[in-house]
Design a protein around this nucleic acid. Structure first.
Lengths: 358, 358
DNA sequence: CCCACTTTCGCAACGCTGTTGCCAAAGTGC
DNA sequence: GCACTTTGGCAACAGCGTTGCGAAAGTGGG
């Protein structure tokens, strides 16, 4: 059950166990999973699993899908999630482009729209553009759980209010979530782009702890601790770009000296990718040492321009710091250009599967 | 309910709610708390709270303690925790000293032993010393929940095995938890000193997120995120001292360059406390930005030698980085020399109050 | 082909959880 | 002294996972 400070009653118990079973059905994917396996994985009795899956089948969320080979007795019936039973929309609002995807319960993309969009065109125009894209995608399915919107810059995830989108001061304080929810009549969740990407990557690995480092026009991080995106008290966590790694170093746009972002992008500007990767690696190693995470994933346009060099450079620093012990692996984040939009859609799906926010 | 991947049944529901009520009774302290307040805080119905507190009173864990002023009707009956209903022992194994405390359910110290102890005297002698101290303290009470042991250096908190206690290679791989549990016949928990201190500080604040930075002969951190000590995948989190804040800086004992610990202790060695505090502040600011925590607490012998200067220096860096927004507060960690031992004892008490490990 | 055996899985009864309806107890205030 | 408010326990209840048991559906030896 998720960490809360509130009491739990029978309905809470039921929804917890139901979410747990749904999550296992999802992670099992197309192969499916049998009732007894569900019982083993959850610790519930087979009978309880039968009751839960029976309800899910009645609601159309689960279905039988063949059976396993017998091991000397009645073969196990395999259950699977019915992906078409629910959909969510994810929107990635970048500085110059809007990308919206429609995903099913499995997280598979079943619809997509991509159009140029100037974030500076004003709140009304952007809200309207997002709303039209969402409505267009929603047409093809019976119902939509909600819309997740991811965009750069600091924001208040809990209230869904933007703080100061870098380069677009007119957005400061705009209640994007409520404006969009009112316009669409659907639940809306607003999140930072790096957090959305991290959430999208987190759904694949149950309970993993990793950092997603995004190097594009800026440098940010999405932190996943124990399978949950860590946003912090004021939902401002992940300020990776302005970690200082060089006391009294060069001045950064933020006003400080020796920020990773300034050093890293400066090196990129000079064409010195190896140095940029080394600086990124030092920051990653700091993060790994501080939080003891399992994995570092790299993404963003700048990384995509020389993926092998960045991975190799970061990996080298982590290896050196591990001092003989096994170093934390470094990889390019899967998902590509749609990763953020897909992750934004996952904000709506996650609660179904018991993956609450952190 | 705590975040797990396991199903929950009725006994789990009951123990969750019971722990929640116990936690509220504890945080209420001597003032106590009424049944209706418990109901409001937990979200349970008053009737459920009555049943739960009724069981707690039968078990002797709770008791009635007077009544509130009436607000026009029957006055509320105040309930409080019975501190003497349970005890735990916390042991702080430092390089040259052993400190053991006996605490009650409230966390109040009701017994203490402190003796010189050379960590290099060998496993058998140290285990025996700890066992004798624990037995001596346990004599005065009916029963003890268990013993928490905190010591410096990296270790495996889950298995209770030491890795390499800095300066004492003979401890490498020693299964301290099992050895002590076998010797005493009591549950034993082993933790890093910084984590124990952090846990001790965390019990006061429900759900707080903060960092405890310990500057003594070394530099380490205990991280509390959402009221839970964050230990990481391999229970190695909190490697704060070897965060690199100066690329290609001076060589540190760990082999890297520009570690906070090397810079900070170097400055202390030169008598430049202001510079040490500035370096510590840069590290603290990195941490605050990355995790978006609420509070920074400072402790350790070196900090204790010039507390105001360290607090002021760290605070100045955080203020500068906050750029006009309200900066995260910096304080000296309360608890003093007994803080680590008290926190170690809390490792045993925490599960009673639903504060699972992170 | 039959029959003993294994394994899956649902029905029914059950124990226990928090919830609801109701009422006695214990105050305040006119 | 009486009307009113508020607390908190008793009893009945609905709903959760669990247990006991048996039907269903396979395998494999004779």
């Amino acid at each position: 059950m998720n960490r809360t400070n509130v009491g739990a009653n029978l309905p809470a118990l039921r929804s917890h166990n139901t979410a747990l079973v749904l999550d296992l059905l999802r992670t099992a994917g197309g192969d499916g999973i049998s009732r007894l396996e569900l019982a083993e994985r959850t610790g519930l009795t087979p009978q309880a699993v039968s009751k839960i899956t029976g309800r899910l089948r009645e609601e159309g969320l689960a279905a039988e899908a063949g059976r396993r080979a017998s091991t000397g007795g009645k073969p196990r019936t395999v259950l699977r999630l019915v992906p078409e039973a629910g959909h969510a929309i994810g929107v990635h609002l970048d500085r110059d482009e809007l990308r919206a995807v429609l995903v099913d319960l499995d997280g598979a993309v079943v619809g997509e729209r991509c159009l140029p969009m100037d974030l500076g065109a004003g709140a009304e125009a952007v809200v309207e553009g997002v709303a039209r894209a969402a409505e267009g995608l929603a047409e093809s399915v019976a119902s939509v759980l909600g819309v997740g919107v991811a965009l750069p810059g600091p924001l208040d995830h809990v209230r869904g209010v933007l703080h100061r989108v870098t380069g677009f001061p007119e957005w400061d304080g705009f209640p994007l979530r409520d404006a969009l929810a009112a316009r669409l009549g659907l639940p809306v969740v607003v999140d930072k782009d790096t957090n959305a990407a991290a959430l999208g990557l987190a759904v694949a690995d149950e309970g993993a702890s990793f950092a997603y480092l995004h190097l594009g026009t800026g440098l940010g991080a999405g932190l996943v601790i124990g399978g949950v995106v860590h946003r912090g008290a004021r939902t401002g966590a992940g300020e990776f770009g302005h970690q200082v790694v060089q006391l009294d170093g060069p001045v950064c746009g933020c006003g400080n000296r020796g920020c990773i972002e300034a050093l890293c992008l400066g090196a990129v500007g000079r064409g010195d990718v190896a140095e940029a990767a080394r600086v990124l690696g030092v920051g990653a190693a700091n993060l790994v040492g501080l939080l003891d995470i399992d994995l570092v994933l790299l993404g963003g346009r700048t990384v995509a321009s020389a993926p092998e060099e960045f991975v190799a450079g970061v990996r080298a620093v982590l290896r050196e710091r591990a001092r003989g012990e096994e170093a934390v692996p470094v990889r390019i984040a899967p998902g590509g250009v749609r990763g953020v939009a897909e992750g934004a859609a996952q904000s709506l799906l996650a609660p179904l599967f018991g993956r609450a926010d952190g």
